[in-house]
């Protein structure tokens, strides 16, 4: 209200002159500052994205033909189920490990905490490709882990730790851990430790105090981390492609295969659309249940 008032007054004072303020209100000049970024996003991100999505309805023939694959194509089914399964398993394991790490972090002495925190962050700064190949060295049939296990006589034949779903899950959980730790840790930091002490003083054992006070108070961080990790997992490409060995196909690798190798743009675009819509739906449902803005630091 105040904005329109001042801009109207301004327009009266300088008749015939079109100023930024008279068109866009007094906040207009700030919008101008970010206009280049907005234009870049529109031209180089949303436009091609929209073209790809549009392609899923038009290529090779207009209609919903590509989407019929969702119902009756076995390999599409397999990919979707694999993606969902790996996403769920990765998210579950990541949350468990991230929770444990965060719990230890917030309860550690400040000096130890700093060092441990660096241990969480450093992997985040290393490319997924490098981390994928590192796992390759550890997990392959002639890799470090199998060598040690055979050398010490625990097993006779090497374990298949890579080029299957297990390898993908190991690599992905490792990649996702910092993403899981950060929201959980940030949330735990803000829990008033006196609440836990109060619970103990009021008669709750260590376990009950954790379950009834600390755990519920840390849930917003867990849910935030869960959403972040699950969405990231669904569209993840590098690690599954490296450690899955072509046998465990997740949706991102499958899309790449369709477009780059089979030149099946229609199916690729359809799957990309499906992935995007699924993620938006998930976020939509979650935002009805919980306060997403609060979770991601929006307020």
């Amino acid at each position: 209200m105040a904005t329109t008032g001042t801009s109207a007054a301004h327009a009266q004072n300088s008749p015939g002159r079109l100023t930024v303020n008279s068109i866009m209100g007094s906040e207009g000049r700030y919008w101008l500052l970010i206009a280049p970024a907005v234009l870049l996003m529109l031209g180089f991100y949303f436009y091609p994205l929209a073209r790809v999505l549009w392609m899923s309805f038009t290529f090779p023939t207009p209609g919903l033909g590509n989407y019929e694959d969702l119902i009756d194509n076995a390999s599409v089914h397999r990919t979707l189920i694999t993606t969902a399964r790996i996403g769920v398993i990765t998210t579950g394991l990541t949350l468990i490990f991230a929770y444990l790490i965060s719990y230890v972090l917030v309860h550690a002495k400040p000096k130890v905490e700093r060092i441990m925190f660096l241990g969480v962050l450093i992997p985040l700064w290393i490319s997924a490709l490098v981390r994928g190949f590192s796992w390759f060295i550890l997990l392959r049939r002639e890799g470090t882990i199998n060598d040690v296990l055979i050398g010490t006589g625990i097993i006779d034949t090497p374990l298949d730790l890579i080029w299957n779903e297990l390898g993908v899950v190991i690599g992905m959980v490792h990649y996702m851990l910092p993403l899981g730790v950060l929201p959980i840790y940030a949330n735990m930091r803000n829990i008033d430790t006196r609440c836990v002490a109060a619970a103990r003083g009021l008669g709750a054992s260590r376990g009950v105090a954790f379950r009834k006070v600390f755990l519920p108070l840390s849930m917003p961080g867990v849910i935030g981390a869960g959403i972040l990790v699950f969405i990231y997992s669904l569209g993840f490409y590098v690690t599954p492609a490296l450690l899955g060995g072509g046998k465990t196909l997740m949706i991102a690798e499958y899309i790449q295969l369709q477009i780059m190798d089979l030149v099946n743009w229609g199916r690729g675009a359809m799957l990309a659309t499906t992935l995007l819509v699924t993620i938006l739906l998930l976020l939509g449902v979650m935002s009805r249940i919980i306060d997403l803005r609060g979770l991601f630091g929006g307020k």
Binding site: C195, A197, A198, P216, L217
Partner: peptide
């Protein structure tokens, strides 16, 4: 023992 903390330490949830 009942205890009243500085800053109360009520359970916010």
């Amino acid at each position: 023992f009942g205890m009243v903390f500085q800053g109360y330490a009520l359970f916010p949830h």
